[in-house]
Lab assay of single mutants.
Amino acid sequence: HMTFVALYDYVASGETDLSFKKGERLQIVNNTEGDWALAHSLTTGRTGYIPSNYVAPSD
């Protein structure tokens, strides 16, 4: 899985969403939902949907 870094803070709007903080590292599990991606946080160990425009690929 590619690793991504959060560009902004995001507060989950539902139970299936994943909250994260700017700078948090995430792995995209499934990116077939258009503007949303299923992601796993390497920081918190949690998995949920995130807005895909809130993250960018990290080196």
Rank of each mutant, 00 (worst) to 15 (best):
residue 35 D to N: 11
residue 3 T to P: 06
residue 24 E to K: 00
residue 19 S to D: 06
residue 56 A to Q: 11
residue 40 H to P: 00
residue 17 D to F: 15
residue 59 D to Y: 13
residue 40 H to S: 07
residue 59 D to K: 09
residue 10 Y to W: 08
residue 55 V to E: 03
residue 48 G to K: 01
residue 53 N to R: 14
residue 38 L to T: 02
residue 1 H to K: 11
residue 20 F to P: 00
residue 47 T to H: 07
residue 26 L to Y: 01
residue 19 S to C: 05
residue 48 G to E: 01
residue 16 T to M: 13
residue 33 E to I: 12
residue 30 N to D: 13
residue 11 V to F: 10
residue 16 T to N: 14
residue 12 A to T: 04
residue 53 N to S: 14
residue 27 Q to S: 08
residue 22 K to G: 03
residue 44 T to I: 01
residue 34 G to C: 09
residue 45 G to N: 07
residue 25 R to P: 07
residue 31 N to H: 13
residue 8 Y to D: 06
residue 42 L to N: 03
residue 15 E to M: 10
residue 57 P to N: 09
residue 4 F to A: 05
residue 36 W to D: 01
residue 21 K to P: 00
residue 19 S to Q: 05
residue 13 S to P: 09
residue 55 V to A: 07
residue 26 L to E: 00
residue 43 T to V: 11
residue 2 M to G: 09
residue 13 S to R: 13
residue 47 T to S: 10
residue 57 P to E: 09
residue 13 S to M: 13
residue 38 L to F: 12
residue 22 K to A: 11
residue 25 R to K: 12
residue 23 G to I: 01
residue 37 A to K: 13
residue 15 E to G: 08
residue 6 A to S: 05
residue 3 T to Y: 13
residue 52 S to M: 15
residue 40 H to E: 07
residue 10 Y to C: 03
residue 37 A to T: 12
residue 46 R to S: 06
residue 35 D to L: 11
residue 5 V to M: 06
residue 23 G to D: 04
residue 45 G to I: 01
residue 27 Q to L: 15
residue 51 P to F: 03
residue 51 P to M: 05
residue 17 D to N: 10
residue 29 V to N: 06
residue 1 H to W: 14
residue 1 H to G: 14
residue 34 G to P: 07
residue 58 S to D: 14
residue 7 L to W: 06
residue 46 R to Y: 07
residue 26 L to V: 04
residue 20 F to E: 00
residue 31 N to F: 15
residue 18 L to K: 02
residue 17 D to E: 15
residue 21 K to T: 09
residue 41 S to I: 02
residue 54 Y to F: 12
residue 44 T to D: 03
residue 14 G to Q: 10
residue 52 S to I: 15
residue 49 Y to S: 03
residue 50 I to Q: 00
residue 51 P to K: 05
residue 10 Y to N: 02
residue 15 E to D: 13
residue 35 D to S: 10
residue 34 G to L: 07
residue 10 Y to M: 02
residue 51 P to C: 05
residue 8 Y to N: 06
residue 17 D to C: 15
residue 7 L to E: 06
residue 30 N to F: 14
residue 59 D to W: 13
residue 49 Y to I: 07
residue 11 V to L: 08
residue 16 T to P: 05
residue 2 M to A: 10
residue 59 D to M: 13
residue 41 S to Q: 04
residue 54 Y to I: 07
residue 58 S to I: 15
residue 48 G to Y: 04
residue 13 S to T: 14
residue 16 T to G: 14
residue 15 E to K: 11
residue 1 H to T: 12
residue 42 L to C: 11
residue 19 S to L: 08
residue 2 M to H: 12
residue 59 D to I: 13
residue 17 D to R: 11
residue 5 V to F: 07
residue 22 K to N: 02
residue 56 A to P: 10
residue 56 A to L: 10
residue 42 L to E: 06
residue 41 S to T: 01
residue 24 E to R: 00
residue 12 A to W: 03
residue 33 E to W: 13
residue 49 Y to R: 10
residue 52 S to H: 08
residue 36 W to R: 08
residue 9 D to F: 03
residue 3 T to V: 15
residue 39 A to M: 05
residue 38 L to Q: 03
residue 32 T to C: 15
residue 49 Y to G: 01
residue 26 L to D: 00
residue 32 T to W: 15
residue 37 A to L: 15
residue 35 D to C: 13
residue 58 S to P: 10
residue 10 Y to I: 02
residue 23 G to H: 03
residue 52 S to D: 03
residue 33 E to H: 13
residue 7 L to I: 08
residue 27 Q to V: 15
residue 52 S to V: 15
residue 30 N to R: 12
residue 51 P to I: 03
residue 27 Q to E: 10
residue 43 T to R: 08
residue 4 F to K: 03
residue 17 D to M: 14
residue 45 G to Q: 05
